[in-house]
Measured scan of single mutants.
Amino acid sequence: MEVRTIKVFTTVDNINLHTQVVDMSMTYGQQFGPTYLDGADVTKIKPHNSHEGKTFYVLPNDDTLRVEAFEYYHTTDPSFLGRYMSALNHTKKWKYPQVNGLTSIKWADNNCYLATALLTLQQIELKFNPPALQDAYYRARAGEAANFCALILAYCNKTVGELGDVRETMSYLFQHANLDSCKRVLNVVCKTCGQQQTTLKGVEAVMYMGTLSYEQFKKGVQIPCTCGKQATKYLVQQESPFVMMSAPPAQYELKHGTFTCASEYTGNYQCGHYKHITSKETLYCIDGALLTKSSEYKGPITDVFYKENSYTTTIK
């Protein structure tokens, strides 16, 4: 009895394709271990004539594949690729409408935090270190965002349907971005203890939790000093293409032309909904596939993004 075979390709990165001759009487799992086709788990399936010449994702289970996976995804987590594939199996079914010149995501599976993050990423200057993220990001900007969303979920250790947080998501993504040249110098002034300067680099240099107003941050924000008295913390120097200011959701007025974009969060910790506000020729609110415009805006804002380049204080 002759062994019926077909020729397929296996890959971990969709760049390096490895030619395989597979036995049609055995499952993919018996031949390769966990195997995925377009995100779908085909591990328990036997090869079919229609699979001839198709590319299958496999887990990096030998040295060659491990090197290829690390170079593309910059992670050695053995569960990463499987999590990416199972997320992709959902995100490829989502709709990605162009809204006001940006790629958004039609609401499904509690994905409003991903839509808000995706919209924000198209408006701030950011370059990702893992080629996987950078490639998928370019495709997302062009309207094909399924891979990018699935990668975000995998890097953030999230599953489809789980509630997510924009600030946490951005923080994970910033860790995989090139923020080497970003720098922030802060000064804390206390009447009792004097003053202390701190220099922050990388992710810490672009994120701040405690106030939404970048102007206020430049002037000074009140913080408790270690001595128990009130101290003032203010920005001395900022070198970065953008800054992200966050605070627990509270009524906040966004003035046209003073910011790049913002995240609105309605609801409580267990259950809520994100919308995205962007400042173009007027203010726009993007909620999944829905767009509304207004000249002014007041609502429960939790993150505001500002364009920056270089700032030095005039406070002496």
Rank of each mutant, 00 (worst) to 15 (best):
E2G: 10
V3N: 14
T10I: 14
V12P: 09
N14W: 08
N14F: 09
N14M: 06
I15T: 12
I15M: 11
I15F: 09
L17H: 14
H18R: 12
T19S: 15
V21F: 14
V21N: 14
M24N: 15
T27I: 13
Y28E: 01
Q30L: 14
Q30D: 11
F32N: 08
G33E: 05
P34F: 11
Y36F: 15
G39P: 05
D41C: 15
D41S: 11
K44N: 14
I45D: 12
K46V: 10
K46H: 08
P47D: 04
N49D: 13
N49P: 13
S50M: 13
E52F: 12
K54I: 15
K54V: 13
T55K: 15
L59G: 10
L59Y: 15
D63W: 08
T64H: 11
L65S: 11
L65E: 08
R66Y: 11
V67K: 14
A69P: 06
F70Q: 15
E71H: 08
H74E: 07
H74F: 06
P78A: 10
P78V: 15
F80N: 03
Y84F: 13
Y84D: 04
Y84R: 03
Y84M: 06
M85L: 15
S86I: 12
S86C: 13
L88E: 03
H90R: 08
K92A: 09
K92Y: 12
K92N: 12
P97Y: 05
N100Q: 10
N100S: 10
G101I: 04
G101N: 11
G101V: 03
K106G: 15
W107R: 03
W107P: 05
A108K: 08
L119P: 03
L119I: 03
L119C: 06
T120P: 03
Q123H: 06
E125R: 07
L126M: 08
L126H: 03
P130L: 02
P131F: 02
P131W: 05
L133W: 02
Y137D: 04
Y138S: 15
R141F: 09
A142G: 13
A142M: 15
G143R: 03
G143H: 05
E144C: 14
N147Q: 13
N147F: 07
F148P: 02
C149W: 02
C149D: 03
C149L: 09
A150P: 02
L153Q: 04
Y155M: 00
T159N: 15
L163Q: 06
L163C: 10
L163K: 09
D165V: 03
D165A: 05
R167N: 03
E168L: 15
T169C: 11
M170I: 07
S171V: 10
Y172A: 15
F174L: 12
Q175M: 12
A177R: 02
N178W: 05
D180K: 12
S181K: 08
R184T: 02
N187H: 14
V188G: 04
C190L: 01
C190E: 01
T192I: 08
C193Q: 02
C193H: 02
G194Q: 04
G194Y: 02
Q195S: 14
Q197Y: 09
T198V: 13
T199Q: 09
L200E: 11
K201W: 11
G202T: 02
E204W: 08
E204P: 08
V206M: 02
M207N: 03
M209E: 08
M209T: 11
G210V: 01
T211P: 01
S213W: 03
S213G: 04
F217R: 01
F217Q: 03
K218C: 06
V221C: 08
I223A: 12
C225S: 00
C225H: 10
T226G: 12
C227W: 02
C227G: 01
Q230E: 12
T232R: 11
Y234W: 09
Y234L: 08
L235Y: 01
P241N: 11
P241M: 06
V243Y: 01
M245G: 00
A247E: 02
P248F: 13
P248A: 15
Q251K: 11
Q251D: 12
Q251W: 14
E253N: 12
H256W: 14
H256V: 14
G257P: 01
G257F: 01
T258K: 09
F259D: 00
T260C: 15
T260I: 15
C261A: 03
A262E: 00
A262M: 01
S263E: 01
Y265E: 01
G267K: 05
G267R: 04
N268C: 10
C271V: 09
C271M: 14
C271P: 00
H273K: 00
H273E: 00
K275T: 09
K280N: 15
E281G: 06
E281P: 02
T282W: 08
T282H: 12
T282A: 15
Y284N: 07
I286N: 00
G288M: 02
G288H: 01
L290E: 09
L290S: 14
L291S: 14
S294T: 14
Y297A: 03
K298A: 11
P300S: 15
I301S: 01
D303G: 00
V304C: 05
V304M: 05
V304N: 03
V304W: 00
F305T: 01
Y306Q: 04
Y306P: 00
Y306K: 01
N309S: 07
S310D: 14
